[in-house]
Amino acid sequence: MNATTISSSDLSGLAADLLAARVRVAGPARASDGTVEYRHAGAPAELVLDSGVPRRSLKEFFLPPTEPLFAWRTGAGGRVELLEAPLPADPAVVIGARPCDAAGIEALDKVMGWDYRDEPWFARREATTIVSLACAGFDRSCMCTSVGLAPDTTKGSDLLLVPIGGGAFRAEVVTAKGARLVAAYPARFRPASGEAEAEAFRKAAREKVAASAPPAADPLRPWLDAHFDHPLWREASLRCHGCGACAAVCPTCHCFDIVDEPETVGTGVRRRNWDTCQTPRFTIHASGHNPKNDQPARIRQRVLHKIVIYPKKFGEMLCTGCGRCSRACPGGMDLPEVLARIAALAGGAQ
């Protein structure tokens, strides 16, 4: 793998160069209440790279909470004219993405390019370069090592920065897009150094996360397949409020609703909006029947979709172990705990 080195000040300088070249720069920055979220930065100083897990994931830069698909206009003779929303193609660079968030974006490429090619998604994907910052392991809700990833995973990143001390980063070039970024701003990068320091950082981070993460999720699949109606789901979902906070902060929850919203008489916009399988409305049929009529069924759906259904269909896990669902849950639900419980049950069943 190609590598290079960049200092903190050159990283800020790179952000400044990009902004000067009219490239959108995004990364962890503070919201009005001081909390860190991924935001578009107007100046390099707004980026705060070492400040924990941003409140919501990176997915909103590729699948916004709401987005127009097309507008309609009723013209002469009642003819309806459709006006397609322009494809988002503004070049953008994300600086300081967490590896678990970048991995989520790559996992979603599968479903977004499956039965049809989701044009807005891939337009943003192609226009965006993701520079991730290897994570030192954040807190006890982190579980990337349980889902086949690691705090230094390169999945989904174009460039991965690994701290090597002295405010510098070893920058590993992961994709051609990452190589193009390095090539476009040669003055900001130095010859590769700090290989041993980077390796030590990565090893320590993996060990830190693995120490508190639940057992690997992959081997739980046979048990989950065989225990669809296990009482576990009833017990685990008692405290669930059925809100969508977990899905809103999740890097891989991607379900959306499509709505037609009139703007004026004869005009309107079709939009797609984030949705969540945690509400009864998500599955209710026109007949009034609801196949997922209680919270245990909805929690089971969320867990199975992530670690059974998506992997079976697309060959990869739909959870990157970022831990946000556990941090955001107002009812104190905890995915690592649920997986540990399943692992204990599966171990006992063998």
Partner: peptide
Amino acid sequence: QGELARCTRCNACRQV
């Protein structure tokens, strides 16, 4: 408008 721009309509406020 600035504060509410962050709302994704997850409905957590309603559900709790």
